Computed example of a mutant assay.
Amino acid sequence: MSKAFTKETDADDDDDAAGGLPALPPGAKNYITPRGHARLRSELIQLMDLDRPKVVEAVHWAAKNGDRSENGDYLYGKKRLREIDRRIRFLTKRLEVAEVTDPTIHHGRDQVFFGATVRYADETGDERELTIMGIDEADSARQQVSWISPIARALLKHREGDVVRLSTPGGVHDIEILSVSYPATPTEN
């Protein structure tokens, strides 16, 4: 079959997987903190106003250099342009459905809501801490989990001192909420 009739990759149209982020559950809101929203918006502006025009200019220059089928600059530029466009579509969709939720409004409360930092102990007494964030901003390396993760869903709406049942693939475990905190409002810093 001619190469002209083959699709380059199966992921070209998979906007939901752009950037390795999970898809939103059907009907779920895309909760996000103001900082996370600003970061996504800044990335979108960077891609649209700076990165994409530079790549378009490079592709245009490379296209003028003759045979495009063996022109590495042209081929790489076109591939990079598709990646940028896919990420722009993804960010645009995510920002359109984003529901900015400021966790500072819960500062001083002991109940777990979006944006809470929760310290808890498992059945063995091991203590851990995590912060419940939006799907697009959670970073496990920084002890942040998405609000749709099993542990976040188990913790939500409970209070300090509550024992919560957490279902995992390894079985059901009891965890005790030791403390709940939220970021202070900017005037309280």
Rank of each mutant, 00 (worst) to 15 (best):
D174I: 01
G27H: 12
G171E: 00
A4D: 12
R109E: 09
R52H: 09
R89D: 02
D13Q: 06
I132Q: 03
H107P: 00
A154C: 08
T92W: 08
V112D: 02
D73K: 15
I177G: 02
L75P: 00
D136H: 06
I132L: 05
Q46L: 15
S42R: 07
E129F: 04
R159Q: 04
A4H: 14
P150M: 07
L91E: 04
T9M: 15
S146E: 04
Q111E: 11
S140I: 08
V55T: 13
A121S: 15
A58H: 09
H37I: 02
G108L: 03
I151P: 05
I151E: 02
L130K: 04
S69D: 09
S2E: 08
V55P: 09
F114P: 08
Q46F: 14
R159F: 02
E127H: 12
D49M: 08
Y74M: 07
V112H: 03
V172M: 07
E137L: 01
V59S: 03
A4L: 12
E127I: 15
V164N: 01
A18V: 00
T124P: 00
E83V: 05
N30E: 08
L24S: 09
E127G: 13
V163K: 05
Y76Q: 14
I84R: 07
S42A: 14
L178F: 02
L155A: 06
V145K: 11
A121K: 14
F114D: 03
G36W: 10
R128V: 07
E70K: 12
D14P: 03
S179G: 04
T168W: 04
G171M: 03
P26G: 11
A11S: 13
D126M: 13
T168E: 09
T92P: 10
A23E: 07
L47C: 03
L81T: 01
H60G: 00
T117L: 11
I45M: 06
N30G: 05
R89V: 01
T104M: 10
P26H: 12
P186D: 15
A58G: 10
H173Y: 09
L75H: 06
E96T: 03
R119K: 15
D10R: 07
P186H: 11
V55L: 03
I132A: 06
A152C: 10
I148Q: 15
P150D: 02
D16C: 05
V180A: 01
G27R: 15
T187N: 10
D122N: 13
D139H: 04
L166F: 07
Y31C: 09
H106Y: 13
D110C: 01
P34N: 05
S140V: 07
K7F: 00
H60Y: 08
Q46K: 15
L21A: 10
V100Y: 02
P103F: 06
S181G: 00
H158I: 01
L166A: 08
E57D: 14
Q111L: 07
D136S: 07
R87G: 12
D85L: 04
F5I: 12
A116W: 03
G108N: 02
